[in-house]
Amino acid sequence: MKTKVLAIDDSRTIRNLLAATLEEAGFEYHCAVDGREGVDMYDDVAPDVVITDINMPNLDGFGVIEELRGTGINSKVPILVLTTESAPEMKARARDAGATGWITKPFDDQSLIFALKRVTGAVA
C-alpha cells in the first residue's frame, strides 16, 4: 500500500512540485486547491498524511488544521505545514493548532521526503 498524501496548496506550481517529487518517491498523491476543498476531500481521500500551505483563500492552513483536528473530523494523521517563514512564531502557531511538523519553502526533494519520513515512517 502506498502512503497517501493529501496536499493542500493554492499554488499550481507548488502542487506540481509536490506531485512530481511525491509520485516519483512512490507516494500516492492527492491535492486540493484551497483549505476548504482540502477539508472537504479529507474523508474521501483518507490520507496517511496531510501537507498544507498556510496562506490560502477559503480557509487558511491554520483553519485546515483546526478543522481536521477538531471534533468534527478528529483526525490523528500527521499534518505538515508548508511555510516560507521559518520564524519560530509561525511554527509555534502551527503546532498549537495541531500541526505535526513543517516544511520550509522552497523545499528540495530530500527535505520533503525526510519530513514525511519522520512523521509517517514512509520510506521513499
Binding site: R36, G70, I73
Partner: peptide
C-alpha cells in the same frame, strides 16, 4: 481516521458563508 462524514459536512457548511465563491 474514521470520522463521521455527515457531522463534518454540517459543521463545515455554515461557516463558509460565501459558498458560491469557493475557489
Amino acid at each position: 481516521a474514521t470520522p463521521e462524514p455527515t457531522e463534518k459536512v454540517e459543521a463545515a457548511k455554515p461557516e463558509s458563508n460565501k459558498p458560491e465563491q469557493r475557489g
